[in-house]
Computed example of a mutant assay.
Amino acid sequence: MCTDFRAQLAAADAALRARLVRKDDLRHMTATGTLRARRLARRADGRSQSPGETVVRDALMDRGLVVEPQRLIEFVGHVDLWVEERMVVEIDGYAFHSSREALGEDSRRNNALTLSGIPFLRFPAVDALRDPDLVAARIEAALRGRTNLQRRHPR
């Protein structure tokens, strides 16, 4: 209880992904734990591959949006977040997006999404971690077709 909910959720996601705990272990919390523990058990998803993905997913879910982590899209591959079954959101961490090869792969994926007619947004992981609610607001605005996005950068 000494950390915020999203930090706990990111830890739960990582533990599930690493198979240190099972979803059943977390479900047990649903029956026996606090309201916060039950929410954690419901929201934890081992498919998320980074804390940035986790916190943005949670912020989008707080807004009532449907989010699927690591959705496989033909000709693109797995995408970080599939939002409302119509938009791709990628959260780019420096560790996996800093090489020439990664830049080339990101370009290939962006082109495949564009050619498929699937809208997508990319956010640096540092922005996602610093202000996931602002990132979620920008995603929601894009989904709603609003063009008057906030000019403020979350840095």
Rank of each mutant, 00 (worst) to 15 (best):
R109H: 07
R71A: 07
V88H: 05
T114D: 03
I139G: 00
E85D: 07
L81C: 14
T3D: 09
D80F: 14
M87A: 08
R19Y: 06
V66A: 12
D133T: 04
L72P: 02
D133N: 03
L121S: 11
E90I: 12
R39E: 10
M61V: 07
E140Y: 00
A15T: 14
A41R: 01
R47I: 15
V66M: 10
D62H: 04
E105W: 08
V79P: 07
P69D: 02
R86A: 04
R100M: 10
D25C: 08
K23D: 09
R6M: 15
V79R: 00
R42M: 11
H97A: 05
S99W: 13
L149D: 02
W82P: 14
D92W: 06
L149Q: 00
H78T: 04
E85W: 09
A14I: 09
R36V: 14
R151M: 08
R71P: 11
R63L: 10
R122P: 04
N111L: 13
P132C: 02
E85Y: 13
H78F: 15
D80T: 15
D106Y: 09
D127N: 12
Y94P: 00
E90P: 15
F96E: 07
L26T: 00
R152I: 07
P154A: 11
V76M: 01
L40Y: 11
D4W: 06
I73R: 03
D4M: 07
E85F: 06
R108P: 02
R122S: 15
A142Y: 02
Q70M: 11
D131N: 13
R43Q: 01
Y94F: 06
A125D: 11
R6S: 07
A125W: 12
R38T: 04
D13R: 11
L121P: 04
V21W: 00
L134A: 12
R130G: 04
A44R: 04
V55F: 11
L26D: 01
A31Q: 08
K23H: 06
L26Q: 00
L134T: 15
A15C: 15
F75C: 08
D4H: 13
Q8V: 12
L26W: 00
E140K: 01
L20G: 09
M1H: 10
M29H: 15
S116T: 08
M61G: 10
C2P: 09
V79L: 00
R63F: 04
T30S: 11
E74S: 08
R17T: 15
D62V: 08
G93L: 09
T34L: 01
P69N: 03
R36M: 12
L60P: 15
R27I: 14
A125Q: 09
A14L: 06
H97L: 05
E85R: 14
V79W: 00
L129G: 03
A37E: 04
A18Q: 08
M61H: 05
R100N: 03
G93Y: 10
D127A: 11
E53A: 13
E85N: 06
F96N: 11
E68A: 13
T32N: 01
L9A: 06
D25F: 09
F96P: 05
A112P: 04
F120C: 05
P154W: 09
R57S: 05
L60F: 01
R100T: 04
A41Q: 00
A37W: 06
A18S: 12
L121M: 09
R42Q: 10
L72R: 03
A37C: 03
T54K: 14
D25A: 07
M1T: 14
S116M: 09
H28P: 03
